[in-house]
Design a protein around this nucleic acid. Sequence first.
DNA 1: AGGCTTTTGTGTTTTCTTTCACATGAGATT
DNA 2: AATCTCATGTGAAAGAAAACACAAAAGCCT
Lengths: 206, 206
Amino acid sequence: MKTYKISEAVVKRLPIYLRFLNELAFADIQTVSSKELGDKLDLNPAQIRKDLAHFGDFGKKGIGYDVGYLIEQIRHILKLDTPINVALIGAGNLGHALSNYNMYHRDSMRIVAVFDQVPEKVGQMINNLEILPTAQLIQKVRELKIRVGIITVPAIEAQNVANQLVEAGIEAILNFAPIIIKVPVKVRVHHADFTTELHSLAYYLD
Amino acid sequence: MKTYKISEAVVKRLPIYLRFLNELAFADIQTVSSKELGDKLDLNPAQIRKDLAHFGDFGKKGIGYDVGYLIEQIRHILKLDTPINVALIGAGNLGHALSNYNMYHRDSMRIVAVFDQVPEKVGQMINNLEILPTAQLIQKVRELKIRVGIITVPAIEAQNVANQLVEAGIEAILNFAPIIIKVPVKVRVHHADFTTELHSLAYYLD
DNA sequence: AGGCTTTTGTGTTTTCTTTCACATGAGATT
DNA sequence: AATCTCATGTGAAAGAAAACACAAAAGCCT
C-alpha cells in the first residue's frame, strides 16, 4: 500500500474495473487475470496491475485476482462501502434518467432528495421522492447530511445552484450543465457534458 | 497548420472552447485572450494557445483571438460546419433528455431518427420524430445517411445495438450504456457513463 | 520432487501532456 | 518615430501516464 497521491486517471478506471467485476461475480466467476480484464475493458494488463498495486497486493501470482475480494477492496478504496447521500438538482428528463439509478444499483450512493425550481414540478413524485423547491436546497442538504450534488439544471442556473450547494457544505459535485462551474478548491467537481463528447466525436469522422 | 496526429486530449478541449466562445459571441464580445479563456475554463493559457496553434495561427499578438473567426475555425476543425445525421437508439428518459438537444442547438449535428425496441413506445413522438422499431435500424441508418449513433439502451442490449450500427456502416458511436462495447477500429467510440463518474467522485470525499 | 506454465508486482523505458519562458510582432501612447 | 504594453506562438523543460519486460511465486503435471 502506497501513500503518495493517486492520479486522477487511475481513480477514473477503478469504477470501470468494479463494474466489470460485478458482472463476473453475477456470472459466478471466481477468478480473473489482468489479461482478461484488459481484453474486456480495452486496457493494457500492466496498467491494470499497476493501478491495483497502488492500493495493495490483491492478486496471486500464476492465478490472478479473486473477483469477490477485489470487488470488496475497490468498493472500499472508492468509499462505496459506506452510505453517501446525494442530491439531484433539476427534475427534467436528465434528472429523471439519473434518478432511476437508485433502482438499479444497490450501492451506497443514494439520491435522497430531488429539487426543482419550476412550481408545477414541486410536489410531484420521482422514484418515491417528492420534488422539493430549490429554495429548500441549503436547509435539506444540511438536514439530510448530503455530501454529493448532481446538477441537471440549465446552464444559466448551474453556477447559482453550485453556489448554494457549496454554501450548504457539499463535498463534491457532478455537473451535467454545459458550463464550467466555479467552486472552492476543497469541493471536487466533475463535468459530464455530453454535448462536448458529441462534438469531439465529429472530429474523427472522415 | 501541422499535419501530425492531434492528440485526443486536444480534440476534447476544442468543444469546450467553442461553447464558451459562443457565449462570448452572444454577449457581443469581439476579442478574447488565452488568459481570459484559461481563467474561465480552468486551463493553462499556454495550453490553449498550443492547442489552437496546432491548426493555424488564429491569434494576433498583443490583441488575442477574434471571437467570431475562432468560432468559425473550430467549427471547421471539428467538422461541425457540415450537416451530420445522428441516430438515437433507446427512447427512455436519457434518450428523451438527449433528444431535446436538437431544440437548443442549431448546429450541424442533428438527431434525425429515434429507435426503441419496446412495442408500446414505437409510433410515439419524441421531439417531432416518430419512434421507430429497432428492427428498422440498419435500413434507416443507410437510407438517411446517418453517420453517428447515440446508444441509450440498457447495458444488456448495447453490444447488440452497436453491432447493428456497425453493420449499417456507422462511423462513430457515443455510448451511454454502462458497458464497454466492442467495435472495429475504424469506428470511433466514446463512452459517456455517469455511474463511473459518480463512483470516482466518491473517492475524493474525506 | 522437479519442471512447466501462468500471472503477478514492479523497475525501467518510452511516450504523451502540460507548463515554462521568451523572442516576436501588433497596436497604443507620447 | 520611438517607446511601451500586451499577448501570441513555440522551443525547451518538467511532469505524468502508459507500456515493456522480467524476476518471483503459485499451482499443475508427470
